[in-house]
């Protein structure tokens, strides 16, 4: 359970009332600032079990990457497929929300990716790496949905975003996505598309809350959205194309502005969490800093002073506004 008061507030109370060590102990107990022994054991048990599942998943990935030549092709596939079948069987016997079922489905999701990698590694399909991750995300989605587990959802979000990152970053000329978006010559727009895909997921789970997509996973989606948004916005402002030299891209900037506006309006109406506003503000600061950099020449040392002052000014204003909003909304929730 997250306590109502933060450590800094408890420090403030101890200072204000000049509490001695014994009284601070009572203060910490009353504020539920110290976990009980059973809380500690529960946390440790969860950490160990989740760590165990993640370690097994890493072991499986390392095994496939090792490409062990002493096992024949059939044997390699059989091994990974056996893991997949065993995980599925375990999940059927002990379905989620039991930990065994969740862990088994998570491992099955990882095994799906390992199997795809093994397939590409063995038969040299010529597929781009982003296709592997995208196919993994698509094929693994039912397993993640069945797992009903935040950890599995977060892993799926990361796999999807690695696929998008590889696609946007390497700008490949083949594969599924290229067939759809191949006609556009504006990389910033493609990157903003990746941002909006994450944003769509975030909005979907904001409006329809499910336990498998807890707060921290929704924040992960939003962070991914604005990493792409910042990247695309920076590209659109600096006018740099991958292969066509310089060109302006107002639609990409409009898409970014729309994303920032949509998230900002939603957060202000909901009045519960300032994290979305912080992410939007961070994107604004970086993109505006990039814009500032393009307006001055690098021979002018004043650019560095201006950029420093801009950073100080915007981050001060952002920090002030966000902190005030956080306190106000927290007080409203407590009331």
């Amino acid at each position: 359970m997250q306590p109502k008061l933060k450590r800094s507030e408890l420090d403030g109370l101890a200072e204000f009332h000049s509490l001695d060590t014994r009284k601070v102990e009572i203060l910490l107990q009353l504020a539920d600032a110290r976990p009980s022994r059973s809380d500690g054991l529960r946390f440790l048990a969860n950490c160990l079990r989740i760590g165990g599942v993640l370690s097994l998943a890493a072991g499986l990935v390392f095994f496939v990457a090792a490409n062990w030549s002493e096992i024949a092709v059939f044997g390699r596939f059989a091994l990974v497929e056996l893991v997949l079948v065993a995980c599925a069987a375990m999940a059927v016997v002990k379905p989620p929300p039991a930990f065994v079922g969740r862990g088994a489905l998570f491992l099955a999701f990882i095994a799906t990716g390992a199997l795809l990698a093994l397939f590409g590694q063995t038969y040299q399909t010529g597929a781009d790496v982003y296709e592997l991750f995208l196919t993994w995300a698509l094929l693994g989605l039912p397993l993640v949905v069945a797992a009903q587990w935040g950890v599995a959802t977060a892993a799926w979000v990361m796999v999807l975003n690695v696929a998008l990152l590889l696609y946007c970053g390497w700008h490949p000329t083949g594969g599924m996505l290229w067939a759809i978006f191949g006609s556009t010559r504006h990389p910033a727009q493609i990157i903003l598309g990746a941002a909006w895909l994450n944003l769509a997921l975030w909005f979907a789970f904001e409006f329809r809350r499910v336990s498998a997509v807890p707060d921290w996973v929704r924040r992960l989606m939003l962070s991914c959205a604005f990493v792409f948004g910042t990247w695309g916005g920076g590209l659109a402002i600096t006018d740099i194309d991958f292969d066509l030299g310089r060109r302006t891209d107002p639609p990409a900037l409009l898409a970014l502005a729309a994303a920032m506006l949509a998230v900002g309006v939603y957060a202000m109406r909901r009045r519960t969490d300032v994290y979305p506003l912080a992410v939007v503000t961070g994107t604004f600061i970086i993109v505006s800093l990039v814009w500032l950099g393009t307006k001055l020449t690098f021979h002018d040392e004043g650019i560095f002073l201006l950029m420093a002052l801009w950073l100080i000014g915007t981050s001060t204003a952002a920090g002030r506004i966000l902190t005030v909003l956080a306190r106000r909304w927290r007080a409203e929730v407590q009331a």
Binding site: A45, L48, A57, G59
Partner: peptide, 14 residues
């Protein structure tokens, strides 16, 4: 190593 660590952690956690 990772597989062994995983099994050990799971046993300890359970």
């Amino acid at each position: 190593i990772m597989a062994s660590a995983g099994v050990a952690l799971l046993i300890a956690g359970v």
